[in-house]
Structures are given as C-alpha cells and as structure tokens.
Nucleic acid binder design. Structure first.
Length: 568
RNA sequence: GCCCUCGUAGUUCAAUGGAUAGAACAGAGCUCUUCUAAGGCUUUGAUGUAGGUUCGAUUCCUGCCGGGGGCACCA
C-alpha cells in the first residue's frame, strides 16, 4: 500500500539524519481535511522537535530534503506547511495505476488481511421469541451484519450467530398469561399470533403491577419448563415456531442471513459444566438463596448465576454459550456481541468471570454496544407495549418510495432505513423520527444507490460508444501526467484504509461516511458536464474513473448490506 | 449514592491530539433541449461550562451543569 511507501520514505530520511531510533514515535500519516494540503500529511517533525531540541519547521525541512533525495515515483511533491507538517502530493501516474488496479481487482478491491487466520463469532440481532421485532432490534441486526461483512472482507473467518432469546423467565410470564387470559388453541388460530402474544405479555406486566403473585407464578412456570414439564414445553415450542416464521420474513426483507441460530435454549444442558467449573475454582457463593459470582474488591456488583429457586439466569447461559464457542471454534476465536449498551455492565461481569474461569484471555471478547431508538418522550419498551414494529417502518419507507416500481421501492426503502442506522457512531441514542429515517435525500442510502445507478447508466452509454477501449491509448500518452488529479481519484484509493479502520474499530459508520463523501465527489465530478464525449481527449479516463467509482461504491454498499441497483 | 455513556450550526450526523471544525436537512439565491435534477453551484449558521496537560484539545485529565442507561432473582 501507498502508506508503506511513504512510511519507509520517512523512516529512511530519519535514519539518514541520524536521529536516535528510540526517540522516534509511531509514524502517523493522515489525510489532511483540506485536499489542497496534499494527499497525506505527517506530523513527525512536530512530535520529534522537542525530543531532539530542534525547531519543528527546520527539522521538517531537513526531513523533506532527505525524502526528495530518494523520491519514489508515486510522489510528485513534498513540502513543509503550517507549524511543521510534511505534506505529500501523490503523482498523477500513481492515481492512474490505482484506477487500473481497482478495475482489475473488482469486487476484491479493499479486501484486507488483518484478520487472516483468525476466527470470529459475531452475535447479533438476537430477538426475543414471542416478542415483536421492533425498530429496537434493527440496530443490532444492521450493525452486527455490517460488522460481520467487514470482518469477513478483512480476512477473518466469520460465524454469524443469532443468539435468540428463546429461554428464560419471560416464558413463564407468557405461559401464565396464555393460561389465564387466552389459550394455545386460540393463539394458533389467530391471524396475527405474535401480536396476540405481545398483547398478553403487556397485559401480564399491567396485571403484575397490581398483583405481585403473578411474578412468582411466572418464575414457577419457567422452573417447570427447565424441568421439562410437558405442558410448558409444548406451549414453548409453539411460541418458538410462530415467532421464527415471523422473523424469517423480516430477515428476508432486510437481506440478513445467519450461519447459526443456537438460541439460549440450546445451552440448557451445557450449564451444568459451567457450574462445575465455577465450583472448582470457588469463585461463586450463595447469598440470600441465590448463587452469585463475587468480584475482587467489588470491582463490579455480583453476577447472579442461579436464582433462589435453582433455575438459571441469562448470565449462566452466556457463560455456557462462550464455553461452547471456544470449544467449537478454537481457543483463539474472538467473540463479538452486538448488543445494546444497557447491557454493558453484564458484559463486563461476563468477561471478568470468563477470565477467572480461563475461558478467555484478555481482549478476545468484545461488546459492541449501541444506543437505542427513543421517542422524544422516553424509551421504547415491549413491556409497556409502545415499541414500533419494524414491519410498519419498512412498509412506510417503501410507501414513501412508491414513485418507483415495486421492486425498486423495496430496495430504496430498506436502503434508507439501514443507512440511517449505519451512518452514525453506534454509541449514541437515535431519537425516533419518521422523516429522518425515511429520508431519501442528502446523506442517505438512496443517495448512494442513486449515484451507483447513475454511474452504471454512464457506463452503458460508454459501452455503446466504445469509449473505454480508447483508454490504453490515453494512458500511454505521457501528457496525462500533467493533468490535474480529480477529487474523485483522491477519494477512491482510500477505500482499503477505510475498510481496515472500520474493521479494527468495529465501526461500520466509517464506511458509511466515506461512501457519502465518495459519491458526492463523483456527482461533483459529473457536475453538469458530459463524461462520455468523443471530442474530449480525457473522456476515456473519465469513463475508467466512473467504472472504478462504481466498483468501490458497490463493494462499500455490500459491506453495509445495502443493495446497489443497476437502474432506478 | 456508586458506575457507564452522550453534550458540536435551527435539526440530524462527521472530524486516528493537528492546519481555516466537515457534511446533509431546513432557510436565501442560482442551475435542467443533457449519459438519471432523488443531481450540481453560491450563501447564512456550531464545539454545554470552568480549569489542567500539550508546540497544538471537539478529541486526553479533573470539577460543574444537562440528556440517557445500569447497579440481586428480566434479557
């Protein structure tokens, strides 16, 4: 990569200047915000100045002189600017070779190696059975899917796991509600069984506020379920089946697929082992009838494993899940949980416990936390029954794009919703706002899709006019070295770096914001002028750039899980 | 009470400790006989507050103020 060339250039210069190697910090190359400040900028002179007691600008001048001694052909200009920045300008020839490389690599352009030989389990989406798939689950689904895509593109072997919430006291609650206010036969007959189940769940919480005994009944039923009670098991099975049918529909609409969907119930028979491990090490003890892990110096509050009635709690199931994963995918496998930030403490406790148990080392279990969708008035909650069902949002978005044909409207609507989620850093909350979610203009998914379709349309035209075949002639012409490099080119070659960073930081939004900038520089490049033009000697290269753009954008959209339509 | 997060234009978001804090939407003004105007070009407008570290702070540290979340039988 070009970064390595520049880095070596600087290192050699420092070596020639006989600067003490121990004093040299990590070489930091960044893209100046202002394109006129060059393609890369390095602050090494300013960082180093004090350590070697020299004036930063003078030191920078010396470094530049050394670099120019052995200037690689990729660099056209190096200069000192501002307080002591060293700015690198890449040569027009470099950009031409980049464009060629993109065309050659196609859908492989941007693939990275940071994950080579490593395995990662990405747990995301994880909706709860018998609960609605609301807009709240959208974040985990969309962000987790993008992270899995990015890591896969970066060389990791990825396992996508949907950790279904198909076990726990909630089922006790549901069973109580069904038996009290409905029946399993009635639910099965219903046209909208999930809605009915949710209504029952909400009713349970309303009633439980008045009558605390209900909570105990619910726990009792869950205990029965854990003891394989036939009636409980039957109701549970039916609920799981009905829910899965609903979820499948949504995943299909969203274009999200999983490798595994073990769900919490899968670990029911694997918890005993964990309890044994815990007992062996003596890291948990009984308190008020329950069984909990206590942490040294009360680093964290205690984490419960078993309730006083002996039934399990999610923490124990999570431990079992991770033990299982490490066994199945190897002890070096990285585990990523894309789960809401309200569970941060839980995952800290979990990581600490797993370290004590020897299940993990440090750093191989990562909680990627996200804020949630909120109403201006407050949090959404299934218990209160005020969540917004994702299906409704999708329908609404598609309606808004109804001036397209049906298939395109679906693509655009889903793209708008996904992008709205991916364009921002995941840690913050999103205030639910129909207008923003369904935004089809500006910084949006449809803007990217539109730009892609536009590029494809130009390429169709170019093919008709056989413009691209003239490229060889153009690029062999040395005069092209004197041309002004376009903003679009200055964006295109950065894609691999962006992918790498997004992967390292588990942050798809770096890709999203980059793509907006990229598309905007393309549209700007296109402006109101023509790209396909036989009278313009640069037209062949413009077509090549358009194709390179379409490739990079398509690869980027794929990482975000957003479809790229050929026509709109 | 303790812990975790987030405070950036009117609004929604950016900014690996760097240069003149970028976009988009909304507002004002242009721009379509064109390969796609869901486009392009002008323009107005922002770092919660008080300190500290640094050559340099939106970014790191501390206090305060505000929003959100968590802290034993939900997940």
């Amino acid at each position: 990569m070009i970064r390595d060339i520049l880095e070596n250039s600087i290192k050699t210069a420092l070596w020639e200047l006989q600067i003490d190697e121990a004093k040299i910090p990590k070489i930091n190359l960044e893209h100046p915000e202002e394109l006129s400040h060059g393609d890369y900028s390095c602050n090494i002179a300013m960082v180093l100045a004090k350590k070697v007691s020299q004036n930063p600008r003078e030191l920078a001048e010396k470094i530049v002189a050394e670099i120019l001694e052995r200037k690689p052909e990729e660099i056209s200009k190096v200069e000192v600017a501002g307080p002591g920045f060293i700015n690198f300008y890449l040569s027009p020839a470099f950009f031409v070779s980049q464009s060629k490389e993109i065309l050659k690599a196609e859908d492989k352009f941007g693939r990275g190696k940071i994950g080579k030989g490593k395995r990662v389990v990405v747990e995301y989406s994880s909706p709860n059975i018998a609960k609605p798939f609301t807009i709240g689950h959208l974040r985990s689904t969309v962000i987790g899917d993008a992270i899995a895509n990015i890591l896969g593109f970066s060389g990791y072997k990825v396992v996508r796991d949907n950790h279904l919430g198909d076990w726990g006291t909630q089922f006790g609650k549901l069973i109580v509600a069904i038996k009290k206010w409905s029946s399993i036969a009635e639910i099965q007959k219903s046209k909208s069984p999930i809605k009915d189940l949710v209504d029952l769940y909400v009713k349970f919480h309303d009633e439980a506020e008045k009558d605390v005994v209900l909570e105990d009944e619910a726990r009792a039923w869950f205990t029965k379920l854990e003891h394989k009670d036939k009636e409980a098991k039957k109701i549970w099975e039916i609920c799981v089946k009905l829910s899965m049918k609903e979820f499948e529909k949504i995943y299909k609409r969203l274009g999200v697929k999983f490798d595994t969907a073990y769900g919490e119930s899968f670990f029911e028979d694997k918890m005993k082992d964990v309890i044994e491990d815990v007992k062996k090490l003596g890291i948990a003890k009984e308190s008020e009838g329950a069984y909990l892990v206590f942490f040294e110096n009360d680093k964290y509050p205690p984490m419960m494993l078993l309730k006083k009635d002996g039934s399990s709690i999610y923490a124990l199931r999570d431990l079992a899940a991770d033990k299982f994963r490490k066994k199945k995918y190897g002890k070096d496998a990285i585990i990523i949980n894309e789960v809401g930030m309200e569970q941060t403490l839980h995952f800290q406790q979990l990581a600490e416990t797993e370290k004590l148990l020897g299940y993990i080392k440090g750093g191989d279990r990562i909680h990627v936390a996200h804020g949630f969708y909120r109403f201006p008035e407050g949090k959404m909650s299934t218990r209160k029954g005020n969540g917004i069902w994702l299906d409704e949002v999708l329908d609404e978005a598609i309606e808004k794009a109804a001036f397209f044909n049906k298939a395109t409207a679906e693509v655009v609507g889903v793209g708008a919703i996904k992008f709205n989620d991916l364009k921002r850093e995941s840690s913050g909350d999103i205030i639910f706002n129909w207008d923003e979610i369904l935004n089809l203009k500006g910084d949006s998914g449809p803007y990217l899709q539109y730009s892609y379709a536009r590029a494809k349309s130009i390429l169709r035209k170019a093919k008709e006019e056989k413009i691209s075949s003239m490229f060889k002639f153009w690029s062999s012409n040395k005069a092209s070295d004197k041309r002004e490099v376009t903003e679009l080119e200055k964006m295109l070659y950065r894609f691999p770096e962006v992918v790498e960073r997004a992967g390292e930081e588990y942050s798809p939004h770096f890709i999203a914001t980059y793509l907006i900038e990229l598309a905007s520089s393309f549209n700007n490049f296109y402006g109101n002028g023509k790209i396909v033009d036989k009278t313009d000697s640069e037209s062949p290269y413009k077509v090549v750039l358009t194709e390179a753009f379409s490739i990079v954008l398509k690869n980027g959209l794929k990482l975000l899980g957003i479809s790229a339509p050929l026509k709109m």
